[in-house]
Amino acid sequence: MRMPPIKPGDLSDEQRPLDEQARRIMDGQRVPFTSTDEDGALVGPFPALLRFPRLARPLLEWFTTVAGESVLPARVREVAILATGARYGAAYELYSHSRVASAIGLSSAVVAGLVAGQRPSGLTPEQEIAHDVAACLYTGGPLPGALYRAAVGCLGAAGTAELVFLIAQYTGISLVLNAYDVPLPADAE
């Protein structure tokens, strides 16, 4: 861990609004994972984000925009997030979103396969598209025309755009988690 959590009482005036925004995001999602430590400080990507408010503010706004007005089903979103987290080996992302995915009804076999970097059987067509778009984009090349057309045909133009932005967002979060060597909480399996 390169940046320890910041206790609520130790937050600067510039950090406090970001901390409050992050807590509202978590409360709104009723997260099924540990997001604070025993002192009430935010964990996960937040210790690093809070230390750089100028950089974190637009990231949190982007997150709120993509998550708040979602047109994608929650399970489709989680497939894309877990496929992205697995690509980067972002331990906290895999921990937290495995729990979210399980809580919204993805089977343990599907979650385990995604975390292992696989395309598990048992995905719906929409989930297959989400996985395949994520897997293609993190290889670094353009999204092939056939896959793009399949995504638009399955998810619509708005759903495909949201999927692409979601994958980009969680790629960024994965990189932050890895750069700052964010540890898993004690309740992680």
Rank of each mutant, 00 (worst) to 15 (best):
M1Y: 13
M3V: 15
M3Q: 15
I6L: 07
G9Y: 07
D10Y: 06
D10H: 15
L11Q: 02
E14Y: 06
L18G: 03
L18K: 08
D19S: 15
Q21W: 13
A22S: 14
A22K: 09
D27P: 04
D27T: 12
D27M: 12
G28C: 08
R30N: 13
R30G: 10
V31T: 11
P32Y: 01
T34R: 13
T34K: 11
S35G: 12
S35E: 08
T36H: 10
E38V: 12
D39L: 06
D39F: 09
D39I: 03
G40W: 05
A41P: 04
A41W: 09
G44F: 06
G44L: 05
P45I: 02
F46C: 02
A48Y: 01
R51P: 00
R51M: 01
F52G: 04
R54A: 08
E61K: 13
E61P: 01
T64W: 10
T64L: 10
T64M: 11
V66G: 11
V66T: 14
V66C: 10
S70A: 15
S70N: 12
V71M: 08
L72T: 09
L72R: 13
L72N: 08
P73R: 15
A74R: 15
A74D: 14
R75W: 09
V76S: 10
V76W: 10
A80G: 12
L82V: 08
L82E: 06
G85H: 00
A86I: 00
R87S: 01
G89M: 05
A90F: 00
A91S: 12
Y92E: 09
S96P: 04
H97D: 04
H97C: 06
A101N: 07
S102I: 05
I104E: 06
I104P: 03
I104R: 07
S107T: 15
A109Y: 08
A109E: 15
V110S: 03
V110A: 09
V115L: 02
G117S: 03
G117N: 02
Q118G: 07
R119Q: 11
G122Y: 04
G122D: 03
T124L: 07
P125K: 09
E126Y: 05
E126L: 10
E126N: 05
H131R: 13
A134R: 06
A134E: 05
A134V: 07
A134M: 07
A134N: 02
C136K: 14
C136D: 13
Y138M: 12
A146C: 10
R149V: 04
A151K: 11
V152D: 07
G153W: 08
G153T: 04
G153I: 05
C154Y: 05
A157F: 10
V164R: 07
V164G: 04
V164T: 14
L166M: 14
I167E: 00
I167D: 01
I167W: 00
Q169K: 13
T171E: 01
T171M: 00
L175F: 01
L175I: 00
D181G: 02
V182S: 03
L184M: 07
A188C: 07
A188R: 09
E189T: 08
E189Q: 09
